[in-house]
Nucleic acid binder design. Structure first.
Lengths: 137, 137
DNA sequence: GAGCGTAATATACAAAAAGGAATAACGTTA
DNA sequence: TAACGTTATTCCTTTTTGTATATTACGCTC
């Protein structure tokens, strides 16, 4: 039983370069880290209720996020059904899969960007303080 | 009289790729967008009070940010004086200047990163839907 | 020593965001 | 038709966050 993915691997270790990214839609945030985790959990769990519980998120919050994402996309990312066998449920659409993929690519690029920035800083520091052992070339 | 720089040029236009960056220190955030603007205003105004007013920030908030930055750096970014001619004031140190420069470089690189990501998406979309007019090669 | 404008700090208040709990509606299943 | 587990929605409480206000201390100027 896994829990609490909320925080991207970034924000905690300190010190260093940090950041958060998201994708905006017509009405504000469309895709963000928490939303993507939620989509993945819905895919695994088959319902918003179970997905929310699995990540210690209130159903209310989870539902609002799903609603927000669906409203901001021409095609639904999650299809829901009330009633029926098992009481209903939620499934991830192909569009939802695309969203997950899109965001993780963005996310990975960003992680690499942060690493490059830290390296850049280290280099500039060593060449600055440096000249300590300026081995000719 | 200028005001309200609070929001980076990013977060509003929508839709698209967005993000925020900051630099962490020992006790959490060390440098961020608002903090840098504050440092610049302190440099211009010569006091925390005036700097805070100029950007519609409460003195309390501004003071806490300055305190946080100073505590997390081996050298103060802002030197303050209570009493004295004019009642005191605050001046930006060389270390403060360095901080501003460091953050803006980070910020600029990040803006470029976001642009590259958007271009990347546009390209992948056009080659995907494309084949509409696949002109040879 | 009185006056000045600032830093520094504490207290109380207000607005906003987040969370919890309760309820209705829904469509299968038995 | 009764039961079930889920979606969908509302209301209220709690927590957080920010702001406004007031007070003290400070060191120069006059």
């Amino acid at each position: 039983m896994h829990k609490k993915p909320k925080q991207p691997d970034q924000g905690k270790i300190s010190p260093g370069f940090r950041g958060r990214i998201w994708i905006d839609g017509k009405e504000g945030t469309f895709l963000g880290y928490g939303r993507i985790i939620l989509l993945e959990r819905i895919r695994e769990c088959g319902s918003i209720t179970k997905a929310a519980k699995s990540m210690e998120m209130s159903y209310r919050n989870a539902w609002e996020l799903v609603d927000s994402m669906n409203k901001q996309s021409s095609r639904q990312l999650v299809e829901t059904a009330t009633g029926g066998s098992g009481g209903g449920g939620a499934i991830l659409t192909d569009e939802g899969e695309k969203a997950i993929k899109l965001f993780w690519e963005f996310h990975e690029d960003f992680q690499n960007f942060l690493r490059r920035e830290e390296n850049k800083l280290m280099l500039s520091k060593s060449t600055q303080q440096g000249k300590i052992k300026n081995k000719g070339r």
